[in-house]
């Protein structure tokens, strides 16, 4: 057999392999596209999932729920009266409350120390009012445990929920309202309340 014939014969043998390679590549591309589509569907399904909910006691002893505030961005502030950074956090939350419409933003400051009473919270608020810093948003105590939102147990811990009640952002540690409020020597996290709220409220 001449070399040409042999090559022709081997060329015919190579064709099925090339076809297999082609089909394999096409299959991989199709799988990648399918995976991307599934991921897209999954994320859109998350958006359609019901928002989060928890119950708390307000200062009148009535039960409130996160779901009562659907349609608003909710800032959940977990705190205690003895926590110094939490005390400063109140001043930053006050700026947020003053800068956004109450139709668009709500703040829930929920005290997570089971040993503190509603009267302790009221006395805390009264002290701020006496010094000219009224804290006029919703305060309360835990009813349902908020442990799942507390990262490592430190406070203050802030959670931002979007208008559908999905957890959008959370952070442990003092959070300033805007970049201008951050002291020059601040070495902590510089994420601000304003930038996170603005991402949700247009």
């Amino acid at each position: 057999m001449t070399r040409k014939r042999a090559n022709k014969k081997s060329g015919n043998k190579k064709t099925p392999k090339k076809n297999n390679l082609k089909y394999g590549l096409i299959l991989i591309v199709v799988l990648i596209i399918a995976a991307g589509g599934i991921l897209a569907l999954t994320s859109s399904n998350n958006a359609n999932k019901p928002g989060e909910d928890f119950a708390f006691y307000d200062l009148n002893g009535n039960v409130g729920h996160l779901s009562d505030y659907r349609g608003k961005v909710v800032l959940l502030d977990m705190w205690a009266t003895w926590c110094n950074p939490c005390r400063y956090q109140m001043l930053e939350l006050r700026k947020a409350y003053q800068n956004y419409s109450h139709n668009k933003l709500e703040i829930l400051s929920i005290n997570i120390d089971s040993k503190e009473t509603i009267q302790d919270i009221k006395d805390f608020i009264d002290t701020y009012a006496q010094y000219g810093y009224p804290l006029e948003w919703t305060f309360g105590k835990e009813k349902d445990s908020l442990d799942k939102y507390l990262k490592g147990g430190g406070i203050p811990t802030l959670c931002v929920f979007d208008q559908q009640g999905h957890l959008y952002f959370s952070k442990t540690g003092l959070t300033f309202f805007s970049k201008e409020d951050i002291p020059p020597n601040w070495t902590g996290d510089k994420t601000t309340l304003k930038e996170k709220i603005d991402e949700l409220i247009t």
Partner: peptide, 16 residues
Amino acid sequence: IQECNGNKGICYPKQN
């Protein structure tokens, strides 16, 4: 007693 980090503005749960 409670421990805090003044640089990060965090306090950890109180111990009684």
